[in-house]
Design a protein around this nucleic acid. Structure first.
Length: 482
DNA sequence: TGAAATGTTGGGGCG
DNA sequence: ACGCCCCAACATTTC
């Protein structure tokens, strides 16, 4: 029995169903919770602007939750190892527990910490808790990694998902010296582009639980039919909560299973939703076996793809000024709220890679900086999925027609009118293709193309053809290693 | 978790 | 009544 165990919070900002905390409570007399901001942490993917906003509020919430339970969350900034040593010395702790992370650099970092701390006689233990199935634990019959989602997910479902842990009863250690969160300057200023985000989001464990309950009690009834409609509130919006570990996937899983028992008719919708959790698992599984996924095409022949770097195109896309309303609406929703509806993500991503021939990594970087749910595994895998270079990816020639997609999934134009108000007065007939509207109609709607709203920066037909031609360059070097 | 090109069919206008 | 053409509607294939 150790006296005090340090609970090192990382991407697991919750109290409940946290194996590391369960273990710390079991093994120690007291638990000292700490969060470390290490800006020199390994890896090139330190949190982007939107993630930092979320992190600030999530940490605020966690500190409050711990405070209500009689503890104090300690904030420290600096090199992880030296902070951990420091904290052990200040508190007399001889053990540090944390949740695993799964990014490619994490294993190495955890190994290094383990060794260094071991030489100080401090035990360092890491625990699972952020995934349903540990990466590497789900394998094909032949013992290799799955490269296709469906069989992967089938194999996953053969494994039992453990019930979430009971609420822990924790004896918290006395607080030690701590930074203030505000001093970390995680929030944007000059300008504060997130000023209104508190209207959309409630980061933290309570917010995550509230969101999940709202989803399963109400939204899920629309999920099966309407989750593809960006103007409708029919998605779970759990991604950022999950990313920051404010809720565990097995808590979600258990709630889903319970809901299906209570309301058998919700079965189909909930299974679909659970399969989305499956894609998250699949992404981490792929990242585990293919650690270069965030930077390098999974299909090797794509490394020769003739991307055509063009800063003007990239900026037009980033700013929602491409002249294609559904694309611009999505990019503006992202900028304004830190999130974008999933259907529209596919459309804007396809547009960037195929219509504009910009490297998927440009999109990946932009999403990394602007999404509150930016997640290395999901973001990387999804961009490769869209670009066609990923595992079990969309075929390259699946090139979304932004007009058709708009007309199909935003039929009444509510989504476009919300985010692209300068063309809101156009009728549904032309809303998704204002360049086809007669001069008469445009002037009636008070729209001057090229002034109020851009002309399309590329012609769909030509761009589509150019994308297919570009693909020809690498198609024959396709050597899908059987 | 596409779209466009191409092929096929069948109704209707018309000489 | 018949052949011919047009074209929408649907199916198939191609990218």
């Amino acid at each position: 029995m150790t006296d005090t165990v340090v609970l090192w919070f990382r991407q697991d900002l919750r109290i409940n169903d946290l194996p590391a905390l369960q273990a710390a409570t079991r093994d120690g007399q007291k638990v000292l919770p700490i969060y470390i901001l290490d800006e020199d942490a390994p890896g090139d993917w330190s949190p982007g602007g939107a993630s930092r906003w979320w992190l600030h509020h999530s940490l605020t919430a966690l500190a409050q939750d711990i405070d209500h339970l009689g503890g104090t969350l300690i904030f420290r900034k600096g090199k992880t190892l030296s902070i951990l040593r420091d904290v052990c010395e200040a508190s007399g702790a001889r053990a540090i527990y944390c949740s695993r992370r799964y990014e490619p650099w994490a294993g190495q970092e955890e190994q290094t910490l383990y060794k260094a701390l071991d030489s100080d006689n401090i035990s360092f233990k890491r625990f699972p808790g952020s995934l349903l199935h540990e990466p590497g634990s789900v394998l094909t019959q032949g013992g290799g990694p799955f490269k296709v989602f469906t069989p992967f997910w089938r194999a996953c479902r053969r494994n039992e998902v453990p019930q979430p842990a009971e609420k822990p009863s924790v004896a918290w250690a006395e607080g030690i010296q701590s930074d203030t969160l505000d001093a970390w300057k995680l929030l944007p200023r000059d300008p504060d582009w997130a000023a209104s985000w508190n209207e959309f989001w409630q980061p933290g464990e309570n917010g995550a639980q509230a969101r999940l309950h709202a989803f399963l009690d109400d939204t899920v009834s629309r999920y099966a039919d309407e989750r593809d409609l960006p103007s409708v509130d029919a998605t779970s919006r759990m991604s950022a909560h999950l990313h920051h570990g404010e809720i565990s996937p097995r808590q979600i899983w258990a709630m889903c299973e319970q809901k299906k028992l209570e309301q058998p008719h919700s079965d189909t919708a909930i299974n679909k939703f659970q399969a989305e959790l499956g894609w998250r698992e699949f992404s981490y599984h792929l990242l585990h076996f293919f650690p270069h996924l965030p930077e390098t095409p999974f299909k090797e022949n794509f490394s020769g793809f003739p991307w055509q770097a063009n800063e003007t195109y990239l900026q037009a896309w980033q700013r929602g000024q491409t002249g294609y309303p559904i694309v611009d609406a999505g990019m503006r929703e992202l900028w304004a709220t830190g999130i974008m509806h999933n259907r529209v993500r596919m459309v804007v991503a396809s547009f960037l890679c195929k219509h504009l021939l910009q490297h998927w990594r440009c999109g990946e970087d932009w999403f990394w900086d602007t999404l509150v749910d930016a997640d290395l595994a999901s973001n990387g895998c999804s961009w490769q999925w869209v670009a066609g270079s990923g595992a079990d990816a969309a075929p390259y020639f699946r090139i979304f027609n932004p007009v058709t997609q708009g007309e199909k999934f935003d039929k009444q134009g509510d989504y476009v009118r919300r985010w692209v108000p300068e063309i809101a007065a156009l009728s549904n007939k032309y809303l998704h293709k204002p360049w086809e509207a007669p001069a008469e109609v445009l002037s009636q709607a008070g729209v001057t193309l090229g002034a109020d709203y851009p002309e399309p920066i590329v012609d769909h037909r030509e761009a589509r053809q150019a994308a297919l031609d570009a693909y020809e360059h690498i198609r024959l070097s396709t050597a899908p290693s059987a």
